[in-house]
């Protein structure tokens, strides 16, 4: 079955080290699971200042509705926002905090 093994902290570490490019087969499968299906309803990334600031957010229920942006945290690099998105989706799927901070 497609599921996340919460004991695989090694995959979190791998993604944190290298969010883009060549990944191990197990991390590739984990990311496919996190990314499967429509983005609506998932945690996404919103660029709020081009090239300078990113935040986490969520799309509304359909076009024409507001994009909810998490104003409590801002990320100064895209990589940091990607890592925060990974952690949020880990929690969305497993119900538990991502074990790697």
């Amino acid at each position: 079955m497609l599921s996340i093994d919460p004991s695989r902290t090694d995959l979190c570490e791998e993604f944190k080290r290298k969010p883009f490019g060549r990944h191990s087969a197990d991390l590739h499968r984990l990311l496919d699971l996190m990314r499967w299906g429509y983005a609506r309803g998932k945690t996404i990334i919103v660029c709020t200042v081009p090239h300078k600031e990113w935040r986490l957010g969520q799309l509304g229920p359909r076009r024409g509705t507001k994009v909810e942006i998490d104003r409590s945290r801002a990320f100064r690099s895209y990589e940091d926002a990607v890592w925060a998105c990974f952690r949020a989706r880990w929690k969305d799927i497993t119900g538990k905090d991502c074990p790697v901070r």
């Binding site: 883009f20 990311l31 496919d32 996190m34 990314r35 499967w36 299906g37 429509y38 983005a39 609506r40 998932k42 945690t43 996404i44 990334i45 919103v46 660029c47 709020t48 081009p50 990113w54 957010g57 799309l59 509304g60 076009r63 024409g64 509705t65 507001k66 994009v67 895209y78 926002a81 990607v82 998105c85 990974f86 989706r89």
Partner: peptide, 30 residues
């Protein structure tokens, strides 16, 4: 507006959906 049109946008791009300010405007404006 691929980010909302495609169910396969993230698995095709292998990225988490990332909206620019223009994407947010289009999503909210329709």
């Amino acid at each position: 507006q691929m980010a909302t049109s495609w169910h396969f946008d993230e698995t095709s791009s292998t990225k988490f959906t990332t909206l620019s300010p223009a994407d947010v405007f289009m999503e909210e404006t329709v």
